[in-house]
């Protein structure tokens, strides 16, 4: 008598589940198939959703107007444009030496000193 293990297995299976291929045990296989389908569908849905989200994010990144980024350039040093110059005593004496000087008294009591060249001095005299 041929007693292959799979034939024993078939006998044992049908001892406890009368009709193995179509009875209650086959429901296990049908339920498993349904679960596998659901999981596959879920995986596909998630993958499609993730792809769509990635495409949307890419599209938004490409199509949104670029805003100029304000850049803070270092300010160029401005030339000092003061209306007066402070000089030392030596410089003042050097400029006054052998030069005519015009001293004008102002109404507020201050005096304004102006260096004159020789021609201007002659004209004043």
């Amino acid at each position: 008598m041929n007693r292959k293990p799979e034939r024993d297995a078939k006998l044992l299976a049908e001892l406890f589940h009368d009709n193995w291929s179509a009875g209650p045990a086959a429901d296990y296989a049908r339920a498993a198939a349904a679960i596998a389908r659901r999981r596959r569908q879920l995986r596909r849905t998630l993958a499609a959703g993730a792809s769509a989200a990635a495409v949307a994010a890419l599209w938004m990144a490409v199509s949104s107007p670029r805003q100029a980024i304000p850049t803070q350039l270092p300010a160029a040093p401005q030339p000092v444009t003061r209306g007066y110059e402070i000089i030392s005593d030596e410089e003042l004496l050097g400029q006054l030496r052998d030069r005519p000087v015009l001293v004008v008294r102002k109404p507020n009591g201050t005096r304004e000193i102006t260096l004159l060249d020789a021609a201007a001095a002659n004209a004043l005299e």
Binding site: A9, L12, F16, A26, R40
Partner: peptide, 25 residues
């Protein structure tokens, strides 16, 4: 089986199920 194909599962149940059940029994 991975696709959840009913025919594949029926075949798996018919060919492999008895041996799995025997192991478990």
């Amino acid at each position: 089986l991975a696709r959840g194909d009913d025919a594949a599962w029926a075949q798996f149940h018919r060919n492999y199920g008895p041996a799995i059940f025997r192991q478990l029994l």
